[in-house]
């Protein structure tokens, strides 16, 4: 395969046991993601993209194969691989501030450091005024900002995002997509992002990795050659060059999906 990446996945297999029968989810997956890349994973439903993300995060162990991040093998969850969940999975008994500072605190940083880094990230996501509020008092978009802030407060090397904007309304999605891009651009971290919305995939990605139907592997890689600072062009979303990629992606996914029957049962990594 191609040159060594920052994130390397080698011959990955994931087989679940469901009611005594083996249920293969991922088979022979190989992928290399470069340092600082914004990689987006798309594909038919339950084709293993969320599973792959969870494997990179270390929440699950593969049946066979290996995953390396920055040369080190993945052996369990770690603050260096931050994960943003699809339905946020925040701690509702804590205030916004407590949620955001949980990571730094747990890692044993000094009180001063905890305060500083929490303030920095809450400011960046625009939640300073809402620090003492409880989560149920915030809108979905604001809650997900907390989701990002708490992960970024740990200064991760890799940011893993499982369709984080999927529950939000369209305009919030557009706003937050821009914010995600800006944070990525500023920090230069590697991002692996799963989404169902092809418009969003094209808008965010440098490279789109398209999955084949379950059991999954990467079927195709689509490079998106749009300007780097995409948030600066307010009309980019309505431009033909952007939608040209959207149409291309649409065709690829539809073609991939038609290769096998749509899986009827839901996959094991669905929430």
């Amino acid at each position: 395969m191609s040159a060594d990446g920052f994130i390397q996945v080698k011959d990955l297999d994931l087989v679940y046991m469901k009611e005594g029968k083996p249920f293969p989810v991922i088979k022979g997956l190989n992928v290399n993601i470069a340092k600082g890349e914004f990689a987006v994973l798309v594909g038919p439903s339950d084709s293993g993209k969320t599973c792959l993300l969870r494997l990179i995060a270390g929440f699950e162990d593969p049946t066979s194969g290996e995953i390396f991040v920055d040369g080190k093998s993945v052996k369990g969850p770690d603050p260096s691989r931050g994960y943003v969940f699809q339905d946020m999975v925040l701690f509702p008994w804590m205030t916004v501030h407590q949620n955001a500072s949980f990571g730094p605190k747990s890692r044993g940083l000094s009180e001063k450091e905890v305060k500083e880094v929490t303030k920095k990230w809450l400011d960046k996501v625009g939640l300073t005024k809402f620090q003492e509020k409880y989560l149920h008092e915030l809108s979905g978009g604001m809650q997900q900002r907390v989701g990002f802030a708490r992960v970024m407060a740990n200064d991760p090397e890799v940011l893993l995002c499982d369709d984080p904007l999927g529950q939000l309304d369209w305009v919030s999605r557009e706003t937050l997509s821009n914010e995600v891009l800006q944070v990525w651009h500023e920090t230069g971290r590697t991002v692996v992002y799963v989404t169902q919305a092809i418009e969003e995939a094209v808008y965010l990605a440098q490279k789109i990795y398209i999955f084949a139907p379950r059991p999954g592997k990467i079927a195709q890689i689509l490079e998106v050659k749009l300007p780097e600072k995409r948030w600066e062009d307010k009309d980019l979303r309505f431009k033909k060059e952007y939608y040209h990629y959207v149409e291309q992606l649409r065709e690829i996914i539809t073609e991939q999906a038609s290769k096998s029957k749509e899986p009827v049962e839901k996959g094991p990594c669905s929430p």
Partner: peptide, 24 residues
């Protein structure tokens, strides 16, 4: 089609800027 999407988007965005960031 893209033109219509743009027009419609602008209308919705305009409306949003009138309403402040509403808490849930």
């Amino acid at each position: 089609y893209l033109d219509l999407v743009k027009t419609t988007s602008r209308l919705v965005e305009d409306e949003l800027s009138k309403a402040r960031e509403v808490e849930k």
